[in-house]
């Protein structure tokens, strides 16, 4: 029988993959992908806890996370398009206007 811990550890591993993506990737679009991975990892944890605790609150939160993710993608992609129009690239190494 699969326990709650297995789900949580899976969630942790997926989240870490997301973290690696976030810090490794230089392409903004790939950064977005990595963020999606992290959000999904969180969703798995919520759904698992909801199921094992017999409490719907976890699922509710998962819904809202899905909604947030959808909004984020909509706005974020719009911004990405603007950036691409302006600079012709999505590589983070080219955006260093805030260099101190």
């Amino acid at each position: 029988m699969v326990g709650l811990n297995e789900y949580l550890i899976l969630s942790a591993i997926l989240f870490s993959i997301g973290v690696v993506g976030v810090i490794r990737r230089k392409n903004l679009l790939m950064l977005f992908f990595a963020t999606e991975i992290m959000l999904n990892a969180a969703n798995i944890a919520f759904a698992a806890i909801s199921s094992y605790h017999n409490d719907l609150t976890g699922q509710m939160f998962a819904f809202f996370i899905v909604a947030v993710a959808a909004s984020e993608v909509a706005v974020g992609l719009g911004l990405l398009i603007l950036i691409y129009k302006k600079y012709g690239t999505l590589d983070l190494d080219n955006f260093t206007v805030l260099k101190g």
Binding site: L4, I9, A12, F15, V20
Partner: peptide, 21 residues
């Protein structure tokens, strides 16, 4: 550095979640 940070975060979170809830 990427693997160090990613690995560390994985280890830490697994430690956290592996502990009895």
């Amino acid at each position: 550095l990427v693997f160090l940070l990613g690995g560390l975060s994985a280890v830490v979170m697994v430690v956290i979640f592996a502990a009895p809830v």
